[in-house]
Structure formats: structure tokens, C-alpha cells
Design a binder for these strands. Structure first.
Lengths: 216, 216
DNA sequence: TGATAATTTGACCGGTTGGTAAACATTACA
DNA sequence: TGTAATGTTTACCAACCGGTCAAATTATCA
């Protein structure tokens, strides 16, 4: 047969799994750095250490590779938000959400940049994902936050913009890493910058969301 | 003569000014959407409404266009931070800095995305600008913030990470516009989202930076 | 107006792009 | 072991890429 590729016969070969893994790893490297249009199949093949036709045997087109990559990464990327627990203590939930997001920015910067590139370029490939699963998840957690505010456990605030601001402040350390390093300078740009960031952001959000005297 | 181009004879023609303006406008449109590598000269020429050789008459290379664009935009992009006034009232300075940055995200989203693309892709073209003028400016304003903290006018905090968090939260509404709209949904994604964001961010930063009981 | 400089264009170039065809090599498994 | 399915490679293609060139057109100004 000539066309088994990703269109499996039934179950994936060991070789298929290994190679697809290597390809997606290389694709992450390249797409996250140059975006979809700026990335080239040749470059991905080179990083993956295989010939271009070989790569195209597993993923028929550049777009198919990109789709597969996005789908896989998006899922794990949303895990921290899923863990956000309605039954937990608001302050510690928010604190640990910030911490988890910051850890992801530190440990998986390429994944963060992949999405950032996607958003910047209009997100035409994942708009459905955004309007569907992502929106639902955020709606759900926004309701939790709103309930906390209503119960007087945290200050009243727009839960959506709260989530946005946690996303943006934490992902900043992955997406704008070059700028962060340049501004901090050599002495402050070491690994400690994530600890400093965590300390600052926790202070900002915890104090910023503390309950105030309500206007009558 | 054959090569006056941007290498001016002495003063620029009216035609030169107009065309260079049109080209940079088109370049902003395309570069901000696709990044340097993803953008094509043909596409920029099409958006600018002129032939490719004509465009290359004004800017010899794609890189020259990009450089000219970055240089021009970077300068105005930093204006809000320059206005940050040491003599002013800390709370109102921070408040109005947030507001100005948010207005820029609303009114000049392409400029914001241009830089975001640049950062994501390693910023090799502007690394010097970052380590030089940008770092100096931030260092200067960080000193101001530190002084405010020491004087007990705002809470003690890392001034660099404070600036980063203002940058990221505000620029988020330009760079991740697609995501913001998708998550907010049709009813909340109208123009009012900037007002909502401003209200939330002011609350977050003003409360978050309010002076607390100092640990001894 | 005429001549000179500035601008615009169509045709073109070598290199790269995403992708294909088919021959060849390897693996799985009866 | 044999053989069919799976995996890999070499050679290649048309389209597109950034950029050049010389000829044609338009603006400038003495």
C-alpha cells in the first residue's frame, strides 16, 4: 500500500509513533520561532533529522503538521486553568494558578510562543477551538470567581479581565523573554527572574483582589 | 541618476515622502500580521498599491523596509513611558500610564503586534535597541518607582516586574485580540471591552500597590 | 520648451518553497 | 523464509521568493 501515513490502517506502528513524535517536536521548535508562514518544511525536516519527503510521508502537508501540533499542545496548555478549584480557598487558588502558569512559561516557552504566534496572526486555524472549548472553560471559571466575589471572599471585579491579566502577565515571561532579559540586564536576568516575578505577581493579585469597604 | 532612493540627494521630494509613507503603512500591515519571514515583498507592494520594483526603488531590500519601520514605530511606542513623571502623584501616574498604554493597544494594535512578532522571533534586529535606549529608559523609571516605594507612597515591590506587568496586561488587548473577542463572546466583545479592561486594571494595580503594614 | 533628473514598469533571474513520483530499503508476520 | 506492507530516498516539479535591469514614463526647472 502507498498511503497509510497518519491515516492509520488501524493501530500505529512503533516507528510511526516515534517519528511523529520527533516531527512534532521539531515543528514546535520551528513554528514557535517563525510562525506558520515563516516556518519552512525543509527547516522542520532538518531539525527532526530526516529528509523532507520522509517527513511528508507522515504529515501530508505543512498545514496538517501545524494542525496536529496545535491540537496536541492546546490541550495540555489549558490544564492549569482546569485545576482551578471552586471548592478551594480563593486566595490560594489564585496564587497557585499564577504559580502554575509561571512555571509553564518557564518550562514550556515554545508552547507559549506557538500560541502567541497563532493569536498574532489572526488564529484562523483555531478560532473554533477558541470560541468553543476555551470559551466554555473560561465561562465556567469566571462564574466561580464571580461567586467568590459575591460571597465577599475577594473584591468585586470582572472575572474575564482577571483571567486575561493572569494569562498575559505570566506568558509575558515566555513570549517576551528577549525583552525581559535585555531590560533586566545580565545581573538580574538569571533564573531568579521567575522567582522575582512570582513574588511580585502574587503580591499584586492577592493585594489587588483583597476585599475593600464596599460603597453602599 | 539611477540611485537616489532613500539615499537622498539632499532633501526629500514630495513624492518620496508620500510613497515612503504609503510603503511603511503597508509594511506595518503585513509585518505585524506575519512577522518578518512570513511577510512577502509582493504582498506589501500589493497593499501599498504599487509594483514591486517601484517599492524596491524606495527601499532597496525587505530588511531595509523592516528596519525603517521598526525604528520609526519604536520611538512613538515608548512615549507613554517617557511621560511617566517622577514629580507627579504615584497613584495617578500609574493610573494614567495604564490608561495611555491601553489607549495605544486600542488605537495602534498593529504597532503592538509588530513588536510582539519581533520579540517572539528573537528580536535579532532590535536587540541593541532593547539593551540600549529601552533599558536605560526603564532603569530610569524603575528608580522613580523604587523611590516612591521607599518614601512609603506605594507598596514595596520590584519596579521592573511592575513595568512588565503593565506592559503585558495592556498590550494583551492588542496582541491577543482574537482570543479576547472569542472568550468574551459577542455581547461583551464590543468596544466597551477597553473600558472594562481599564476599570479592572486600575483597580488591580492601584489596590495591589497600596501601602500595607510593613513587616518589622 | 527642452533637457535633465526622478519615477515607474515589464521582463527576467537564480534560489527557495511546498509538494510529488517512483524506485529502493526495511520491517512485520504468516 | 518469503512476501506484502511499511518506511525512506533521490530526483524532480511548478509556483513563489527577493531582487535586478534596462527601457519607458513623468516631474522639475532653467
Amino acid at each position: 500500500m502507498v498511503l497509510p501515513r497518519a491515516a492509520r490502517t488501524q493501530r500505529r506502528t512503533r516507528i510511526q509513533e516515534e517519528k511523529e513524535e520527533r516531527i512534532l517536536e521539531a515543528a514546535l521548535e520551528v513554528f514557535s520561532l517563525h510562525g506558520f508562514r515563516g516556518a519552512t518544511v525543509d527547516q522542520i525536516a532538518e531539525v527532526a533529522g530526516m529528509s523532507k519527503p520522509n517527513l511528508l510521508y507522515y504529515f501530508r502537508t505543512k498545514e496538517a503538521m501545524h494542525r496536529a501540533l496545535i491540537t496536541r499542545v492546546l490541550d495540555t496548555w489549558l490544564d492549569p486553568l482546569r485545576e482551578f478549584d471552586a471548592a478551594g480557598n480563593p486566595v490560594s487558588e489564585i496564587r497557585s494558578y499564577i504559580r502554575r502558569k509561571l512555571e509553564m512559561a518557564r518550562d514550556f516557552p515554545r508552547e507559549s510562543r506557538l500560541f502567541a504566534n497563532e493569536m498574532l496572526q489572526g488564529a484562523t486555524n483555531i478560532e473554533d477551538e477558541l470560541k468553543g472549548p476555551l470559551k466554555s472553560l473560561v465561562d465556567e471559571k469566571a462564574a466561580v470567581i464571580r461567586a467568590w466575589a459575591k460571597a465577599g471572599k475577594i473584591a468585586r471585579c470582572d472575572p474575564y479581565h482577571l483571567i486575561f491579566s493572569i494569562w498575559s502577565t505570566t506568558q509575558h515571561y515566555a513570549d517576551f523573554d528577549v525583552q525581559v532579559r535585555a531590560v533586566l540586564g545580565q545581573e538580574k536576568a538569571g533564573d531568579g527572574r521567575f522567582e522575582d516575578a512570582a513574588r511580585f505577581l502574587e503580591q499584586l493579585f492577592i493585594n489587588g483582589l483583597e476585599v475593600r469597604d464596599a460603597a453602599p
